[in-house]
Design a protein around this nucleic acid. Structure first.
Length: 221
DNA sequence: CACCAGGCAAGTA
DNA sequence: TACTTGCATGGT
């Protein structure tokens, strides 16, 4: 299984090149982007991030000073803006109350414990928590998203009943827990998912995974 | 025009 | 436990 996963990564890396993820300048910006991109295209999120940058509201301190209405207007292009306003504020309150506003402290220490604390914030689920830990904190945890599931299902590595944890465990049980590897591997799934492995107009014929050998037996999650 | 997008929580049975 | 629904904007 490990060799199979490494083959997938190599084929993607050779085709797309290193992805240099996450698209964001600071850990806090990355965490905000992780919340704003929930079920939302990145293009929309980028507009909201630009608004927050222009308003100089991309730090815990400055964002906390915004009124709920001001925050909603800035993030409106990312959709679900009333709910996401609350989710961002829940996150800010957690950082302030528990870590005195120090994001890096929140992501440091025992990894399962840090993850559980993030999951305790209303509005932060498994994918958002893992994205923040990996991309904002540099912690070795694999992010599973819609692209990951789609590509894995297409290549018969999981069935459609596989849970988030099932798929995550597939990676973490068979690959070294290297943040740099988990970082770029997930980014490669997004690249292939956006470009070739799409629901409506799949371009499987041109996909770098087109010549991938069949999946090893008995590994379906 | 319909459909999709880097989820999550709350409600129902 | 296992489904279903609401949330909202912007690109294709």
């Amino acid at each position: 299984m490990r060799a199979h996963l490494e083959t997938i990564y190599r084929l993607l890396l050779e085709h797309f090149g290193h992805q240099d993820w996450w698209p964001g300048d600071t850990p806090f910006e990355i965490a905000v982007g992780a919340i704003l991109t929930q079920n939302t295209s990145w293009n929309n999120v980028a507009q909201a991030i630009d608004n927050l940058k222009s308003a100089e509201a991309l730090t815990p301190e400055t964002m906390t000073r915004l009124s709920p209405g001001e925050l909603e207007e800035l993030i409106r292009p990312s959709g679900f803006f009333r709910i996401k306003q609350k989710r961002l504020r829940n996150f800010l309150i957690y950082l302030e109350d528990t870590w005195n506003g120090d994001l890096s402290a929140a992501l440091d220490g025992d990894l399962p414990a840090a993850r559980d604390r993030l999951l305790g914030v209303s509005g932060i689920g498994p994918e958002t928590a893992d994205s923040i830990l990996l991309y904002a904190g540099g912690r070795p945890i694999f992010v599973v998203d819609a692209y990951t599931k789609r590509v894995f299902a297409r290549h018969d590595l999981v069935d459609d009943t596989a849970s988030y944890h099932d798929i995550q465990d597939l990676f973490m049980a068979h690959l070294p827990h290297d943040p740099a590897l988990f970082n770029d591997f997930h980014a490669q799934f997004v690249a292939v998912g956006k470009t070739y492995c799409r629901p409506k107009n799949p371009r499987c014929a041109e996909c770098p995974l087109g010549g991938l050998p069949p999946a090893p037996k008995g590994i379906k999650a």
